[in-house]
Amino acid sequence: MYKLIIGNIRITVSDDSISREQATAAARQSIAAAQGQGKVLSHIEITKGETGLDIIPTEKTGHRQSRKTIKQSMLDGMQVAIQEKLYPTGTFSNKDLWYDGDTGQEWTGNAVSDARDELVKAFESWASTIK
């Protein structure tokens, strides 16, 4: 018995007489068939049967709920970028300071935190309208 991994799919080969090349080819074929049906696999078990290789795929549970649309993925990326820009995590960054590199203006205090909070709320409100 040995194990392989293709992408994020675990493959268990229960018979040592099955070559790695055979197991890999059978697993890739199973993965392609599952993708053609819109399924996502988490595990494939390969055994030696009477007529050849027996392939037992296991579909990833709950994957449909955890999958995102392209728009949701982009919105999540925008949310991360906004958080990084508006709430810097650097050790030497001043959290109550905003500097505009174009004009050289600088703001401090509550005006900065109020503006940040307002912008984040506006983005979240807008993002919730995107389907």
Rank of each mutant, 00 (worst) to 15 (best):
M78R: 01
L119Y: 10
M74C: 08
A115M: 12
I31T: 05
V120H: 05
E118I: 08
G109V: 11
G38H: 14
K39W: 06
E84M: 09
A115K: 03
H43L: 09
K95S: 12
L86W: 01
E124P: 05
S66W: 01
M74H: 11
Q22N: 15
I6D: 06
S17V: 08
K3V: 11
N8L: 10
G62P: 11
S66N: 13
R28G: 06
E59T: 10
T91R: 03
Q83C: 03
G49W: 03
R10S: 03
M78E: 04
K95H: 06
D76M: 12
T58Q: 07
A34K: 05
A26K: 02
I55P: 04
A127R: 02
N94K: 08
V13P: 03
P88F: 12
Q37G: 05
T108H: 14
V112K: 00
I82C: 09
I18L: 02
S66A: 14
L86T: 00
D102H: 02
T103I: 10
S14H: 09
K60V: 07
G49D: 01
I55N: 07
K68Y: 11
G52Q: 03
A34P: 01
A25T: 09
L119G: 04
G90K: 09
F123S: 00
Y2I: 02
A32Q: 06
I46F: 04
D16Y: 08
V112I: 07
D114M: 05
G49C: 01
K68F: 15
M1F: 10
I82L: 15
I9V: 15
A25Y: 01
I18H: 00
I82Q: 01
L4H: 00
T51Q: 06
N94W: 02
M78C: 05
L97A: 04
L86N: 02
A111R: 03
S113K: 08
Q22G: 10
S73A: 14
W126D: 09
E118V: 11
V120M: 15
S66L: 09
A27C: 07
R20Q: 15
G38V: 11
E106T: 15
Q79Y: 12
R116M: 12
F123T: 04
G101I: 14
I70E: 06
T51I: 14
Q105D: 11
T91Q: 10
D76N: 14
I5D: 13
A33P: 10
A111Q: 00
S125N: 11
T24H: 02
A33T: 14
T129H: 08
T58V: 15
D102Q: 14
I70L: 11
W107D: 02
S125I: 03
A127N: 03
R10H: 10
A81W: 02
R67P: 06
S113R: 09
T129L: 15
S66E: 14
D96K: 08
W126E: 02
A122Q: 09
A26S: 07
W98T: 12
